[in-house]
Design a protein around this nucleic acid. Structure first.
Ligand SMILES: [Mn+2]
Ligand SMILES: [Mn+2]
Ligand SMILES: [Zn+2]
Ligand SMILES: [Zn+2]
Lengths: 149, 149
DNA sequence: CCCCAAAATGACTATGATATTCATTTTCAT
DNA sequence: ATGAAAATGAATATCATAGTCATTTTGGGG
């Protein structure tokens, strides 16, 4: 973890950038926090330890991490984007439209089929976005109660 | 087609709405046009015949059609949403990041696997968004030219 | 055809996420 | 320590979309 942060900073320096306290703080919180954070959520967390972190810096840091390949931008259609560390293996998402919870899944057969479909269309895929929306276990009506509301 | 427009208007009337020239014009162009249109694109087309169609009305019409189930909102992460008629069967999209072209595909096995994955997570899916990004046939480098740029 | 209340319109303004600007502060090689 | 480049943060700009509101359109009685 410390290793990771140092590696990223080194990479920034090697491309003409400079180290920065604010950015280091933001990155630390980002990689330590739960996944699928909003810029606003991350800013709030960052400001707990350093009251004068600006939202602009959080936006810039996340964009930088995304550009460097250490973060992924997610868009579940909520208005604001979410970000997650890209250190874990590729996966797609289950988004609960009731409580907002986001679960992750990996399905190699879906991945394969996507490759296949793309190939059949003469298409060279570089990435994809798959999000399944619905109700998570806790939010789905089990029997038939609460049809209204 | 005329039938469809009349059916939609009737449905609007049956829920307390009134017919409208502007809206009829916008709907006509929407259903007649190619798929995956932006509000701005549709507004431009609509204004050719009627110079004073307001963008607000196009937004409202599209929202209305979406609410009534006759249009689907798509978001390929371009900034602006796209809309398509929902009269065709469900399908997902291949988006070319070079020329912007959007192709459609249907892969029942992917659909099934999504259901299965959701079930395994105790999740009740209601919809999903799948978009594959990359280069279409015309935009993909065939051999090995143009590695840079 | 006329009236009129409800609905729709379109110009304008508001909103909200994100990007940009710019004066100030940090960083760091010399 | 010094200075130039990079980073910051507050303020402002941008851009898609939503809301406001005065005006126009619609359509069901007279
Ligand atoms: Mn995830
Ligand atoms: Mn389509
Ligand atoms: Zn839930
Ligand atoms: Zn293309």
């Amino acid at each position: 973890m410390e290793r990771l942060l140092r590696r990223i900073d080194d990479e920034i320096v090697s491309t003409g950038g400079k180290r920065s306290r604010s950015r280091a703080h933001i990155m630390g919180i980002f990689f330590r926090s739960g996944r699928h954070l909003t810029v606003e959520e991350l800013t709030r967390k960052a400001r707990v330890k350093n009251r004068n972190i600006g939202a602009a810096t959080v936006y810039r840091t996340l964009k930088l991490l995304a550009r460097m390949g250490y973060a992924k931008e997610l868009d579940f259609g909520e208005g604001a984007k979410r970000y997650e560390s890209s250190l874990t293996a590729h996966h797609d998402h289950l988004v609960c439209t009731s409580c907002g919870n986001v679960a992750e899944f990996e399905e190699p057969r879906i991945e394969k089929l996507q490759e296949k479909v793309a190939r059949q269309h003469g298409f060279s895929p570089t990435m994809h976005r798959l999000a399944i929306y619905g109700q998570c276990r806790g939010c789905a009506p089990s029997g038939e109660k609460e049809k209204t509301g």
